Amino acid sequence: MTIYDKPFKTYEEQIELLRTRNLNISDSEFAMHALDTISYYDLINRYQRYFMPDGEYFIEGTTIEQLYSLSMFDRSIQAFILKYSMFTENIFKTKLAYTLSKDFGVDMSVYLAKSKYKESYQSPNNVLTFDAVQLECLKTRNDNKIASNPTLYYREHHNHIPPWILLKNLSFSNSINLFKLLKNTQRDDVVNALLPDETGKTIPLNDKTNFIICALEAIRVFRNAAAHNLDFTALRTNETRKIPSSTLSKCLPGNLLIKKQNKKIGKNEKVYLKGIYGVMLSMMVLLKTDYLKKQFIVDFLSVFNGIDDDDRVIKPFLFQCYANIADMPMDTQDRFLIYLDQT
């Protein structure tokens, strides 16, 4: 008979286990609510690196109310990331569809013709082939499962499926892959549309292209983690989608959001850019318009308004915990406030 090392436990048993691990639970009813709505794994395991450094016992004074508040704050950040990742995805797909339509036309057999693309794209971990991406595009065209599928509607009511319709149903991942396989003329067109050169500031085209690919991949991964309730705070960009800090810095004004010393980005700043903060700044850059960038910051700052202003302990405590776990600058709020004031 198998003895399971992670057996089922009732909420009452979970509460008693947490108490033996030194978690302060003064209100059993609240603890029951927390475990019933968030789950033991998401409430405890997700943040144990910060609150249980030895993996066995909570730091003295840790309460279940603190863990619950941190979890709710984390979900507010994730909802914010989801919202603006959708903005970013839509902007990217709009630019991509515009170039495909302008240069290749609106007939799928033409704008997805193999001759229009590179045969493959080499990334550090694998080789992406056009045949594989084209197959995913055809699957999207033939998908009958989504009732609100605009591609299906066009297939049944029009004589062609233009790029701006296909891309609405093509996944973010496959859209990025299609972009990677574009020949230089079309890919450069999309790159310059997403990152136009500013007056007095020119970024080499190769650097812009690399930044866009890495930023889009990172945004996609963080968005998926938020959407599927994965360990969002522990997520970091790896070498295959490491956001180039120097290019990101050039896309942002002055020394406001990425701190430099002697014109060099410090080690701590580079750590910040591997996590949520780097993805946030990348989304800001790709949002393009000043209006959207400022709205982005206003929405981020509004997350903090959801924390009770009357509690002079929980508010700074929450962000201090979150910043430590997610590798965000402790002065993130101040950086954004200064940016709003100076731009």
Rank of each mutant, 00 (worst) to 15 (best):
I3W: 03
K6F: 13
F8I: 03
T10K: 03
Q14H: 03
I15Q: 13
E16K: 13
E16I: 12
D27E: 05
H33E: 15
A34H: 13
L35M: 05
L35H: 02
D36G: 15
L43I: 03
R46M: 11
Y47M: 08
Y47T: 11
E56T: 12
S69G: 06
M72F: 15
F73I: 05
R75K: 12
A79L: 10
F87N: 15
N90G: 04
K95T: 02
L96D: 08
L96Y: 09
T99E: 14
D103E: 15
V106A: 11
V106I: 14
S109F: 14
K116W: 03
A132G: 03
A132Y: 06
V133Y: 06
E136M: 01
K139N: 15
T140K: 07
N142V: 04
Y154N: 03
R155A: 02
H157Q: 09
N159W: 03
N159M: 06
P162D: 02
I165Q: 09
I165H: 08
K168C: 07
S171C: 02
F172N: 01
S173P: 08
N174G: 01
S175G: 02
S175H: 06
L178V: 02
L181Q: 01
L182K: 00
T185G: 03
Q186A: 14
N192E: 10
L194K: 12
T202P: 00
N206M: 08
I213H: 02
C214V: 07
A215E: 00
E217A: 09
A218F: 01
N229L: 13
L230W: 05
A234R: 10
E239G: 12
R241C: 11
R241V: 06
R241I: 13
I243S: 07
T247Q: 05
T247E: 05
L248W: 00
L248A: 00
K250V: 04
L252C: 07
L252R: 09
N255Q: 04
N255D: 13
L256C: 15
L256I: 14
K260L: 04
K260Q: 14
K263R: 15
K264A: 15
I265H: 10
G266R: 13
G266P: 05
N268Q: 08
K270H: 07
K274N: 12
I276W: 04
I276K: 02
L281V: 08
M284Y: 11
M284I: 13
V285Y: 02
T289N: 01
Y291T: 12
V298D: 08
F300G: 05
L318T: 05
F319P: 01
Q320W: 10
N324W: 04
I325W: 10
D334K: 15
D334F: 11
L337D: 12
I338R: 14
I338F: 12
Q342E: 10
